[in-house]
Design a protein around this nucleic acid. Sequence first.
DNA 1: GCCGTTTTCGGCCCGACTGTTTTCAGTCG
Length: 576
Amino acid sequence: MADAKDPSNAAIADLLDELGDLYELDGAVVHRVLAYRNGAKAVREAPRAVAAMVRAGTVTELPGIGATLEEKLQALLTTGSIPALEKLRGKLPAGLLQITRLPGLGPKRARKLHDALGVDGPVALRDAIAAHRVRELPGFGAKSEERLLAALDAAGDDLAGPERHRLDRALQVGEALVAALREVPGVDRVELAGSARRRADTVKDLDVIATAEDPAALLAAFRSSDLIADVERGGEAGAHGTTQTGIGVDLRVVAPDQFGNLLQHFTGSKAHNVAIREAAVKRGLHVSEYGILDDATGESERFAREEDVYARLGLPWIPPELREDRGELRLTEVPRLVEPGDLRGDLHMHTTASDGTASVREMALAARDRGLEYVAITDHSASHGFGNAVSADRLRELIAEVRAVDDELDGITVLAGSEVNIGTDGALDYPDELLVELDWVVASVHTAFTSDPTRRIVAACEHPLVDVIGHPTGRKLGQRTGYELDLDRVVEAARGSGTFLEINGSPARRDLHDVHARAARDAGVLLCIDSDAHRTETLENTLWGVMTARRAWLTAQDVANTRPWPELRALRKGGR
DNA sequence: GCCGTTTTCGGCCCGACTGTTTTCAGTCG
């Protein structure tokens, strides 16, 4: 088990990334730098607390963590710092790392600016450009000064990395754009690639791959689309633009016979492609976006279909959601991942009784229209603090209302539930004799995020009347990272008690996220995919939950609410 | 720095673009 003061996986991964960046600035060979970045990825995606693995001496089981990185992590845990990192930080100013985020300025050239001109950050760089000292350096010229100045002006004060966009917002415009381009006469195929196709939580930009008998018509349609605000550059082979909503779009037009190669390449992830290519080299094959070169024949093969690219490499077609280099290349057969149509029920939603906008009846009807067999009405509990608090007396009325709607409506079972707050003491804010009246109990943390959420959630798991933990980590994409949670202990508590864990489908949450949901499943925990709908329209949020579940390698069997309600009811803890 | 049905040492994905260069290193995706 992790110590309360241990750094999180994310914090450890950030340190390894920083080490890689600093070693790169220091002129280390590229593969050593890559080793730190691979190590950072392994730590960031590790399902268990890496600090605990370091203490247990098992951290080298992670792919990419060897003896040297283990030693550095041991130092981090025993002394609180990594000596090599401290030394490099003393040698290379933080501002130097910042300016490498400027487009066109990498570690080599940044280091040259530092060593020759004393540039230690964006301010010093701007001064050096103003004095025309940069153009005097070998490898730099007037054009370099011009471009760097423009980049400094565009970057703003903090030189932060590129903004990332939530998947729902990216897909909304991305799918509309793809649909519009498919309608253009002379256009053959158009597909969304990149992290949007992999259904990642967030995307940096949109990649669109197309084939067309008439590429000019396609490009003209792209330029004039009312979804696109402006097109920065473009030729015959593609264009780069920005949507009205501020998301960059790369459009590539390719020959039909290599559409499969391009789609595979631009779907990524980068780590997936690197792993594919490394494995291919061992078989005498060289994979690129243009084809697969066979050493034996010297011939390069192109494929119109992505399935054939994978087949040529001896692999089954791998669903995009799995392409993260998390073991998918060892699959000989791809599991049938859960699909939206597999969900029979939705066990987390709100009505006007708390902070929703629709009645019990309206929510039930909308769910029935969506093809669901059952729903649980789970308004917030007595101490929620947002919208209407549902007192114990009010909940009794609400249960009666739910029973009445359930009696009235055919074709859908309406269950009485609640989303109960987990207090700072780990207790729930309704008495047990009321909770036992409910068909379904979601328990969630909504307050005091820093007040030992692990202990509180474990306590909720051990409560005999709690069915599922709602949005277990509390993260909100682009807003907050979630509570400092020991997921190992939560998963163990859920497994031991028979509590389900939620994949909350709100596109701002998608919580649990994919890595943790996969770890929970592997530990033997059943997941619930819920909408957390506050309006009838957001019942469709389960779609985002399914995307996360697929990225977690989940099958329908791994998801509790793919079962008919009588079967799921019997699976609850204690068979209550 | 990691890793092993080619290896415990010698490898470690692929290609395009850019600006500065007369053949390429650095950067990017």
